[in-house]
Design a protein around this nucleic acid. Structure first.
Lengths: 214, 214
DNA sequence: CAAGATACTAAACAAATGTTCAGTTCACTA
DNA sequence: TAGTGAACTGAACATTTGTTTAGTATCTTG
């Protein structure tokens, strides 16, 4: 339970939590009132407090729910697909790609992930910590199997790869206006992944050792 | 005027604006009250409204001031230093590096840049737009002069380079706990820049043409 | 120096906010 | 069926919020 694509929980508690997730993601915790959440969920403001104790309790519940959903996506990357990817040699270890494949277009989770990582609350820090550990493990495995290039500082390398990937989600809107495609759509992601893969494969500086063939 | 390192404006208006800048950066616009800003600036709450009309007017003024300071930093990168960098071949076109060199350790501007880029207000979008245009120009110049590798999609390439750089500032705290060094200190940045430069120079995947020696 | 504007404050106000409480409906079970 | 507890609501409460207003000090300028 807890998947985002098929949400089968229609209890009032879940409805409230989902309404809060959407509003929190769009406008931030402090800018959203309990009354707005209640109205969006179609219940009375008192019921929100009845189920979650306080507005902050609701925030904690939404954080946990969002973190669980987000972890489910990331787990796919670090888990099963790693073997396939190592075998095929394809580099599809991208959080952004997983987002596009799993989430419906209007999902509030990308925007909520943004809030989660930017507000200094422990839920965001814990999420990043787990994702970093997974990234580090994948990177080590890739290096050992000869897919990824070795590096003197694998801690920084793993952080750079993760962070560059998350930046697509964090700066989604800005990237969209800059390149003319939303990077969290199949079309935009295809453009993005192609060029980023080129950088990861050959770098971004002109190769000084070899002269370019043309 | 408007530099951050030497702030010579000691008028009450500037004091209030700077106090608001710090509080906004640390806790977000909505979580900070006019009374807190007034207390931090050592003035009465009414004076805040007297100078800026409303709390939202203060936010706009702080946004403009922060954007001006941030633009001043970025302008150095895209402007004068570009020529030197192209001549020397060194790759120091990093916003993060400029931050470390220019800002005092406890500067609120990195955190405020974070808020600026995450809240969908026009000031952040405009800032990113300017920086993207500059990055794009620098990239084109680097490609033409043979420093940077050509790419089929320079719009995406420029966005990726800018966004990967900004991510260091956006995810500063998370990176710090992950790698054990604050990337916005000279020590941490040195580690970061070294490995990122390696990726930009040689990529992150193992080169497939040559078999690994082991 | 006179006077007008500007900087500044204390106090109060109206609206909004999180929260509480008494009471009602509903579901399940003994 | 009677009853017990949970789900749920409407209304009120206390506090906090941004803002206003009236008045005082301070500075500038003729």
């Amino acid at each position: 339970m807890g998947s985002v694509t098929n949400e089968r929980d229609f209890t009032a508690r879940a409805t409230i939590r989902n309404a809060a997730l959407g509003l929190f993601a769009e406008r931030g915790h402090d800018a959203v009132t309990v009354r707005e959440i209640a109205a969006a969920a179609g219940v009375s403001p008192a019921l929100v407090l009845h189920h979650f104790g306080s507005k902050d309790g609701l925030r904690v519940a939404v954080d946990a729910h969002a973190a669980e959903s987000l972890d489910a996506i990331f787990a796919e990357l670090g888990g099963q697909e790693l073997t396939e990817m190592l075998a095929s040699g394809e580099a599809t270890t991208s959080v952004a790609e997983a987002f596009v494949q799993v989430f419906p277009p209007g999902s509030p989770l990308p925007a909520y992930l943004r809030r989660l990582l930017l507000t200094n609350d422990p839920a965001g820090a814990a999420l990043f910590g787990r994702w970093y550990a997974t990234t580090r493990g994948v990177l080590d495995a890739m290096i050992e199997s000869g897919v990824a290039a070795p590096t003197e500082d694998p801690a920084v390398r793993a952080a750079f790869l993760l962070v560059s990937d998350l930046a697509v989600i964090l700066l989604r809107e800005q990237i969209a206006t800059a390149i003319g495609d939303d990077p969290l759509t199949p079309t935009g992601l295809a453009r993005w992944a192609k060029d980023v893969t080129a950088v990861y494969a050959r770098g971004a500086f002109a190769t000084l050792e070899k002269e370019p063939p043309s």
